[in-house]
Amino acid sequence: MPSLIIDGKEIKADPGEKILWVALRSGIYIPHLCATEGAELPFGGCRLCLVEVEIGGRREMIPACAEPVREQMRVYTQTEKIAKMRRTAFELIMSDHHIDCKNCAKRKTCELIRISSSLKWSLRPKKLRSLVRDLPIDDSHPLFSFDPKKCVKCAKCIRVCQRLENSFLDFAYRGFEMVLTTFDHRPLSSLRCESCLECVKVCPTGALFPKESGGTADG
């Protein structure tokens, strides 16, 4: 069983485990959005879980969700450099997010709110302009809707739908233009979706949300 040192604390971990989950289990909070425990191929897209790891006497910035633990590995989760990088990553995520918590069905479970309050960051970006794209909501499905203006592109819904062997969702286009969508932008109701609502459950924000009349609405 390898043991590693996170912020000076010696912690035991299972071989091959990723830093993020070891830290969270031992009560060290690292913000994260796109990580899924046990994922074979970590997505590493949100950059919120960046930590510094000592490698050959140098410190390197690494996403904690993607880096497996090594014996006597030294990890730092609270440095000034990390705080800066994480803050920028968070601002980037929020800069194209339609902030409308009052009317948001997921406000009680929103991961963005959780991160911002635990790190005492404002939801609204301070250094970056807000550039929310003019994209339509798809509310064709009887049980849930998709609001691309609240999507943080964490790919969690893509992965869960893939795991259930449906794979209705994927990203399209790239860069700032990237959107989560279906094949040829077909409406959600036109898919052979079995309404398992797993995508709604894993969505960390209000992008995929249950309709008030049905499902597991809690907002």
Binding site: Q162, N166, F168, L169, D170, F171, A172, Y173, R174, F183
Partner: peptide
Amino acid sequence: LPPSEVFSIVTF
């Protein structure tokens, strides 16, 4: 492959 994945690649 799921059609959504081919669409993703074509649009990328």
